[in-house]
Design a protein around this nucleic acid. Sequence first.
RNA 1: GCGGCUGUAGCUCAGUUGGUUAGAGCGCCAGGUUGUGGCCCUGGAGGUCGUGGGUUCAAAUCCCGUCAGCCGCCCCA
Length: 422
Amino acid sequence: MNDVLPYPPSGNTWLHTGRWRWVEERFRQVCRRYGYREIRTPILELTDLFVRSVGEGTDIVSKEMFNLVDRGGRRLTLKPEGTAPVVRAIIEHEMLAAHPLLKLYYIGQNFRNERGQKGRYRQHQQLGVEAFGSADPALDAEVIELAVRFYREIGITDQQLQINSVGCPQCRPAYREELKQYVKPTLSEMCGDCKSRYEVNPLRMLDCKAPHDVEILSGAPKLLDWLCEDCGEHFRSLRRHLEVMSVPHQIAPQLVRGFDYYTKTAFEITSGGLGSQNALGGGGRYDGLVEDCGGPAAPGIGFGLGMERCLIAMDSLGIEFETEDEAPAVFLVALGESAKSAAVGLLTKIRGAGISADMDYVGKSLKAQMRLAGKLGARLVLLIGENELKEGVVSFRNMMTSQQETVPQSEVIQRIQSWAME
RNA sequence: GCGGCUGUAGCUCAGUUGGUUAGAGCGCCAGGUUGUGGCCCUGGAGGUCGUGGGUUCAAAUCCCGUCAGCCGCCCCA
């Protein structure tokens, strides 16, 4: 969990709201360009939703969810991932009836109860897309290419895309047995995690990092060789589309994702500079998920990417970008009580005309008010004192050139507007 | 869940083998003559040394607990 501040903090410069907005806006732009519409789902969902979709044996469900019980005795969970809530929402609102092909994107908070470290937080923000209603590998390619393009557009030049197929309920069981047969003789030499994975989720052994296990598994049968005709053709087709799109990618036979709902396509995008959490984002196809959650039989594919990891990767690559100008265009300086009152009226008028403006509220001296105007970055200072009040004018000071002029009160708005044009 | 490290002013940190009123830079505030910012000069405010306990004549400093953060493992975003 992190506080993201309005002013760039020293050190962790990525904890700055300006940067977050910039990345979010880029993501929105890309999603809109590809025909995805925004959806927002609640932070709380019924615990059961995640248990059924993500899978009982997964790390997330078995040890990483923030659970709570409400006063009605319902078991609720702070959402640990974004896909299941979206699936729940589209079923509840029968969205597929009106939009047989439904393309959605989201930006939201996820929660996982685990030990934090660089790039991994108990509350983190994910940006993601989900596309429902088509099993066409071209849609897989679209989603993957969208992700790759997004990273490229925010300047992450060292991204690497890895793809794999995790099969389907038709072909996966046979492979699972084959893998178990292969591992069985050497199971006693493997790490404790793998011993339990052997029983609970054998495929997860494939991405074990223990050196000896990696050695053992290097000769293991490949999932890609055991795909059924449908899954095999889907994967080959996906690759052809990626070639046509000129999206560089590597095949990663050991790539297995941590959720049970994935079928066929699985992919991950990594970047250097992230430490041991090198995944920027990942996703895959989930053709049985909507039906499993009580909806129509609709295939789907999506991905999620971590906001914090994007920002950290950008920092480590030294990516610069323009932050929007949040300085007030105009700063009002008032001298004395009656001038203050006139300034308040003027301030309101200026803001009402759509111009950003601000003034002092802590009783600063003229000098201090000027200092504040300078610090805030105001380009124009409007000064009202006894002299100006008497003559019905306002002094305009151009903070860039230090030139000053007087303007009749009735023409102030007009003058600010024309001044902005100069 | 396991292992390691850190915790002193708003921020980044210093603080000698335990020893007077705990320091610096930056930031903040105020002045540098009559109503004018940036640079410069001067001054000022601000800290129960994360927290609880212990050792000692004496603890920011040593020991233990606790909380928080960071880093690695696991896993993931």
